[in-house]
């Protein structure tokens, strides 16, 4: 009973936080571009904007194009949002605030989040649209190539902490955060950040969306709530990335004075803002360059980091 209650609260909390993260992104981007951002709905600073967006998407007509593969088309948003939301099952949101503290937490997160790839390909294939299928193919290419550096980068904290359990990883950082380990921590964090950005399809790696050539990629034929699902999934993924990043490298809820949950929230927010900052300052890289970056730079680098981490944990 308690678990059910917690999971419902978690789900509602995720949706609310994600909704306000979109608001934050719009406000942040607005200020960065000498604009104001949302300001009309909800008088101080447009605070009701995400709710208005949600209401608009809910009442929008759900258009299903005739040539679509109905099963794949209708199932894809659910698969995508399921895969991204399931990750939160094992992410601790504070000291002992977690649904199931799995022994293989890191593995679970990596395995489940890469399932979203199937949903993206289903969306691209099911839409029966040339832009969508091109985008889905790009997505598969990109996500598979970035899975390896991401896993290898995530293995560094695992080796250093000697456990895959997220709470033990945080516990291992109670003295020194992993990002402050000389060279090792910074490089692993950088690899994690870059490959997580690629996994989340954010600029400079958002070639699946690529509206300058593929209009909106695999979401091009979706409307209404299905589109909202695909779009929310992107932000949920981002939230998960920021959370996992702050748990694995930034010491989780470790920190003086403030309560544990607040520290984690603060670090997550900072990481999220960093991702936003990257997004609104850079242009997109081409597909082949993205793949080259993954296989030629990140893959060897992450292998080297892994060996270094092994040596480190062997010596100390």
């Amino acid at each position: 009973m308690n678990t059910l209650f917690y999971s419902l609260v978690l789900l509602a909390g995720i949706l609310l936080v994600v909704a306000y993260l979109t608001w934050l992104e719009r406000k942040f981007a607005g200020r960065m571009q000498s604009r104001i951002g949302p300001q009309r709905v909800g008088k101080p600073w447009g605070l009701l904007q995400p709710i208005a967006d949600g209401a608009k998407l809910l009442v929008k007509e759900d258009i299903i194009p005739q040539a679509t593969d109905k099963t794949a088309y209708n199932l894809a948003p659910i698969v995508v949002i399921l895969a991204t939301t399931l990750v939160f099952v094992t992410i601790p949101l504070g000291k002992s605030v977690v649904l199931v503290d799995l022994n293989v937490g890191v593995l679970f997160i990596l395995a489940i989040s890469s399932l979203a790839l199937i949903g993206i390909f289903m969306a691209g294939w099911g839409s029966a649209n040339k832009y969508a299928i091109l985008s889905a193919m790009r997505g598969v290419n990109q996500l598979i190539s970035y899975e390896i550096p991401l896993v290898l980068a995530c293995l560094v904290p695992v080796i250093l902490a000697g456990s895959m359990k997220l709470s033990s990883i945080v516990l291992a950082q109670s003295k020194v955060w992993f990002i402050f380990y000389p060279f090792l921590g910074q490089i692993a964090f950088l690899i994690f950040l870059v490959s997580a950005l690629a996994e989340a399809n954010r600029i400079p790696f958002d070639i699946t969306e690529a509206e300058s050539e593929l209009i909106a990629g695999y979401t091009v034929e979706y409307s209404g709530m299905k589109f909202a699902f695909l779009w929310l999934a992107e932000y949920i993924h981002l939230l998960a990335v920021s959370l996992v990043g702050s748990i694995l490298f930034l010491g989780g809820w470790n920190g003086p004075w403030l309560p544990s949950g607040l520290w984690l929230a603060l670090k997550t927010l900072l990481l999220f803002l960093l991702i936003l900052w990257i997004r609104w300052s850079l242009v997109r890289i081409r597909l082949d360059q993205i793949l080259a970056l993954s296989w030629k730079v990140l893959f060897p680098l992450s292998l080297a980091t892994l060996i270094l981490a092994g040596g480190w944990s062997f010596i100390f």
Partner: peptide, 27 residues
């Protein structure tokens, strides 16, 4: 890779500077 990082930083600098400018929007 080094050049890449440097260019990221230069782009970040511009957007950071603009983050603190007054918006030019006329509501």
């Amino acid at each position: 890779t080094f050049e890449l990082t440097g260019s990221f930083l230069s782009a970040f600098k511009v957007t950071w500077k603009n983050l603190w400018r007054k918006p030019v929007t006329i509501s």
